[in-house]
Design a protein around this nucleic acid. Structure first.
Lengths: 149, 149
DNA sequence: TATTGTTATACTCTATAACTATA
DNA sequence: TATAGTTATAGAGTATAACAATA
């Protein structure tokens, strides 16, 4: 039971606000949301395709397409795995690393805008609570892995 | 300046969590995210196309396509405006109203899951802060309307 | 046999440009 | 001329099914 009426729907609304702001920041770096999130994941170290699919909530064909498009733009590259010749890793190119770092910094600078109208104390609380929700929630995963109703 | 390091990127991460949970709830009602949001807007009263585009952050051709697809499924219908023969209104069909109401209730019931791991007092605070952010933020709008960097 | 990733296919979503009809 | 909405076109994202190569 939730005390605040409409909390669930408020979350969806809040998510739309964040998403729209994020899309705008991505566009300023000439990135789509999906390519931006991929880049942020691989900019510091390579990841396997399956791992990325799990983190991004994408099935295998979705990952293939996303990496295809991002690789075509010269931002990431596929490499072969050490121990499994079926697998491949995705890492950032120098250009991708630069753009990924710039995007990450810009997100940190501009996304907090959405809480600008809160009093400082409330905003501080919100920052802590958001961090707590993220910390206590198992990371993004396939929709299939989330609990049923 | 933000006190909590990574607040901006935490917001993007939180948004992804919410979005994924919402997509799952929509899918259980056989709706896409965009169709679900359209339905929730028109289920109680008709809206004009331009107004919907502004609320959903969609340009005119995007609205035409979304309403086309949703109308094809029998969930909404176009009507003609009283005073302007260029304009049209979008309202829900009885089926669309039923599905929209059910979706809305299900979102209210299931989205709060993401805060389940918070202590009750923190969760209550989060509910209030989310409501405050939404209340103080001008509603969803075209990305063009958001402040530049 | 099971798993990794790709290909094929289809549909939704979103953007821009050009257009029609009305104001 | 300006506005409401549509059509045309294109690319991105996401899903399922079938497949190839490797484990």
């Amino acid at each position: 039971m939730t005390a605040t009426p409409g909390f669930g729907n408020n979350l969806v609304y809040l998510s739309a606000l964040i998403q729209r702001r994020f899309t705008q920041v991505c566009a300023d770096h000439d990135l789509t949301n999906a390519q931006a999130q991929l880049l942020c994941l691989v900019k510091d170290r390579p990841h396997g395709m399956s791992e990325l699919g799990r983190l991004l909530g994408l099935a295998k064909p979705g990952m293939t397409g996303l990496v295809d498009r991002t690789e075509r733009r010269g931002l990431v590259q596929r490499g072969s795995s050490e121990h499994d010749r079926r697998a491949c890793t995705v890492s950032s190119t120098p250009l991708g690393k630069r753009i990924g770092d710039a995007l990450y910094a810009d997100v940190a600078a501009r996304l907090p805008d959405i809480a600008d109208h809160l009093p400082p104390a409330d905003r501080q609380l919100l920052e802590e609570l958001v961090a707590a929700v993220i910390a206590t929630t198992s990371g993004p995963c396939r929709a299939d892995d989330l609990p049923e109703r």
